[in-house]
Structures are given as structure tokens and as C-alpha cells.
Simulated scan of single mutants.
Amino acid sequence: MATQHGDPLTISRNHPVFDLPEIVAVERGLFARVGLDVRFADGDTHRHGESRDPIARRKEALFEAERADLYNLCEWGGIDRLERNTRGGYIGYLRPAVVAQALVSFDPALNEPHDMNNVPVGINEFTGSHYTALHLLEGTVPREQIKLEHAGPPAARLEAAARRELPAVMLMEPFLSLALERGAHLLGCYFYRGAQVVAPSLPAERIRAFMSAVNAAVDLINADRASFADRIVEETGGELAPERLRREYHRFTHAEPFTEKRFTESYAWMRSWQLTDGRSGYDALLALREGANAHAD
């Protein structure tokens, strides 16, 4: 057992499919082995009808109010939140969860991205569903004909599609498996990682220790993925049985550094969509940088 160092660390919750390595690391004592006291913030992060302002959403608000030290979200969202918030902070690394956001529909007239010209797609603004919808569609549909509509969290998006209130929506697990079980069909999907946002005062040594515990959890998950399916499907409130969770739309790998090349490409893409005004850069936003000491070393 490693000697504990530093104050306890609090994680602001994301969906379990993204947080599973951290959940396992907490429950199996893997953080304690590297000398970290880590816990999750209380409460449900993904309530129906949450604010459209990203910083006002519970996950981000807890971090902004210094009631959480870390949280994960898509890489584009990580950049966006750090540019919006007043607390500051850094992207520590790319999270282990590699997850598909899929474009799904219950409408038999919609079958491929070519069918989506000027057709509304339900997303949650400034989250992975928003950014991946743009990535997925822009290669086929002219940018000016991509129509996105804010529809809230994934459970709300699924219900809107099932009731035919929206022609198509972006979904990830476990709501993707649930939608397919309920009769939806795929028009396309986009796999992506995400970013781990860390507090501005979190030393590089603790970030690396946190990563090592998360990577150990990934190894446990990959040794028996089926035994962890119940944690992912719990969001559906019993509507999806663990054995019905599809394996092909999510997986877990060791955390990876956010390289300068990848950051530069992602940042340029965000500027092209006016999702950032371009005032930041790799050195300003990354905690563990290539070819340089970390901010707190």
C-alpha cells in the first residue's frame, strides 16, 4: 500500500460508460494503492432539463465551485469548458473510454447520412453528441444544411426520437443499445475519446498517479467486460438488461497523452465551426505537455 499524499480528490460524475475505469478504481482500491484518496461527488450529474449553459450544468458547476477536482468529457468540450470557466484548470490526458456516438432514427425514410440534409438531429449542446454529429455529417452534408436541435440528455433524446418528435438523434451507450432494442436503426456512428479536466492546483505527480490507477482498472475491465455491464446499464432504470448491452460500441484502453498535433488539429476544427475564438493554445491548456515540464512540476 502506497503512502497517502495530498488532500482527497473528488470526481464530478459523467455517464458510467465514460466513468467506468474511475468507478472500478475507487471500488477496487486501486487509487489507494497509489496513495490517493479519491471519491465521487454525490448526486446525479445528468438530470433531465439541465441548463443549456455548459458551465451551469452540474458536472461543470461542481468543478467551477471547487467542489470537484476532476471530471471527464469529450476533448472538444474540455477545451470549451476551460475557455469558459473562471476557475481555470487543465486537460490532464485523453480518457480511457472509447465510445461511439451513433446517429439513430425510428423513421424508415432515413437510412444514411445523405438523407440528413436539413433534417433536424437531436443533440445536447456543447457535449460529445453535438461535436460528433458535426464530425459525422460534415463529410456528406453541406455544413449549411446540417441542422442540430438541442434535446437534452440521452434519455430525453431517445424518447423524443421514439415519439417521432425528432427525426434522428445522437446516442451513446447504454441508450444506443436500448434504442436498437426498441426498433431504432443506425445511420452512422463516430468513435471518440475524451479529455480529463483537472484542477489548476493538481500537481503532475498526482495526475500521473491517478492515471496509473485508472489504467490498472482498465486492465480489470478488459479481463471480464461482461461482469461490468450492469454498471453501464444502470442509467436505464432496468429497461436494458446487462446481457443486452452491445459490446461493439464502447471499449476501454489505457489513458493517452493529448499530443500537440492532436490538440492543434482539434482546435483548428473548433475554430472552423466558431466553437472557439482561438484565444488559447496547447501550452495554456495541457497539464502534461510533450517536451516540457508539467505546469506544477
Rank of each mutant, 00 (worst) to 15 (best):
T86S: 10
G139R: 04
A287E: 08
R262H: 08
M170I: 08
L288P: 00
A161L: 07
I79W: 03
L82R: 11
R157D: 07
G43R: 00
N72K: 07
M1P: 00
G49V: 11
H15N: 09
T259E: 09
G188S: 10
S212C: 04
G49A: 01
T264F: 03
I146H: 08
H150A: 08
R262A: 10
S227I: 01
D19V: 08
H135F: 04
N293M: 07
Y93C: 12
N72C: 05
T3E: 15
R81F: 13
Y249Q: 08
T276F: 10
C74N: 11
P54D: 03
S12V: 06
A255M: 11
G77T: 11
L171W: 07
L285Q: 13
L285S: 12
A41L: 04
Y190C: 15
R84N: 12
L94D: 12
T127M: 06
L148Q: 05
E75C: 10
A294D: 12
R52D: 14
D53I: 14
S266G: 08
R58T: 09
T276G: 11
E243T: 00
S212T: 12
P257T: 13
S272G: 15
L166R: 11
A65L: 08
P200C: 02
M170G: 08
S177Q: 05
N293W: 06
P153A: 12
K147M: 13
S266K: 09
W269K: 07
P203W: 08
A229G: 00
N124A: 11
H46Q: 13
K261V: 08
L178M: 04
A151P: 05
V197R: 08
M170Q: 09
L180P: 00
A294Y: 06
N222R: 14
G92A: 15
E149R: 14
I221R: 12
T86L: 11
P203K: 08
W269A: 03
P242W: 12
G49W: 02
R225D: 07
Q274D: 15
F258P: 01
G291N: 15
A168I: 07
T264H: 10
N118P: 00
E149D: 01
P154W: 01
H185S: 13
R28Q: 15
E256L: 15
A168F: 05
T140H: 07
Q196G: 00
A100Q: 12
R67V: 00
A102R: 04
V26I: 14
H295V: 14
A292I: 01
E159N: 10
T45S: 15
P200E: 03
R157P: 06
A156K: 06
W273L: 06
S212W: 01
D219N: 07
